[in-house]
């Protein structure tokens, strides 16, 4: 959050509420315009890192609809707003202001066109799919693994044989720090020493919206097949994740998955529970 910007916006609103309204009677239309501008400024400049333009447009569309609903929810206020607009357009005392508005609107459009064309070329915005859809099954070392039904074979040891389970987790730790930590980092935040060179950045496993939402078989697929195994949907993926099936055994992959959940404290999503 950019507190300075947000506090400035709040201060301006307070000044208008307390100060300006003493001399000028602001009707609902004026308040709507003030709130619209304040929220636009807050979304555009009050949040760090900045929100993508697509999100600002979405939010402002919702706010515009809501403000219009508020304006027209009261017939008297709507009539007053309509009267204000009509007066502005027909009364002589507003003639100069009207000319200014008439000239400003196309100028703003021209400025917008100019600034959009004056930017350095850049690739278009992309709607990247965060969780690609896994196939029904994958082949691994000549065996077929059904991703809908596959479970981590060592997960059950957690209760039946805690020592053996701890050994698998330790093995997973070894695998992680020998192979994964360079990109995903020692705290699994996706900030390893190579991370800055990638786009997209490596996944942050501490984020509650990554491995915490997924089943272990999904992680197995992602680790085993890496970027080359991503589905054709939502391409190009540009991911640098290697296909670890070429370097790790099946047991090592399941072990490193155990370690990921053990380290982050998340539980994997269970399979087929409801019904």
């Amino acid at each position: 959050m950019n507190l300075l910007v947000l506090l400035t916006i709040a201060a301006v609103l307070v000044v208008i509420q307390v100060g300006v309204t003493r001399w000028v009677n602001l009707n609902r239309l004026a308040w709507m315009a003030i709130w619209w501008a304040a929220l636009w400024a807050a979304f555009s400049y009050g949040i760090t890192p900045p929100l993508p333009q697509s999100i600002v447009v979405l939010f402002m569309a919702i706010i515009t609809i809501a403000l219009l609903a508020y304006l027209s929810a009261d017939s008297e206020e709507l009539a007053q707003a309509r009267q204000t607009l009509v007066s502005f357009m027909v009364e002589k005392r507003y003639q100069v202001a009207l000319i200014v508005v008439i000239l400003t609107l196309p100028l703003l459009v021209a400025l917008s066109v100019f600034s959009s064309l004056n930017q350095a070329p850049q690739p278009p915005a992309s709607g990247r799919t965060i969780h690609p859809v896994p196939p029904a099954s994958i082949s691994f070392e000549g065996n077929t693994i059904n991703l809908s039904t596959a479970n981590n074979p060592y997960r059950e040891l957690e209760h039946s044989d805690p020592e053996a389970f701890a050994a698998h987790v330790d093995n997973g730790r070894r695998v992680y720090f020998e192979n994964c930590f360079y990109c995903h980092g020692d705290n699994m935040e996706g900030a390893g020493q190579f991370a800055h060179g990638y786009d997209p950045l490596p996944a942050n496993f501490n984020d509650a919206t990554t491995i915490a939402m997924l089943q272990e078989s999904y992680l197995f697929w992602r680790i085993a097949k890496g970027a080359p195994g991503l589905p054709p949907e939502s391409t190009p993926w540009s991911s640098a994740m290697p296909a670890w099936e070429n370097f790790l055994t099946e047991e090592e992959i399941w072990d490193v998955i155990l370690f990921l959940y053990e380290f982050t404290g998340f539980e994997p999503r269970a399979q087929g529970m409801p019904h």
Partner: peptide, 18 residues
């Protein structure tokens, strides 16, 4: 959850998640 973002916006966010 998945955002439509330009490369510059994604870099500013530090990844695909805001």
């Amino acid at each position: 959850h998945s955002l439509v973002a330009t490369v510059e916006e994604a870099r500013a966010m530090g990844g695909s998640h805001h």
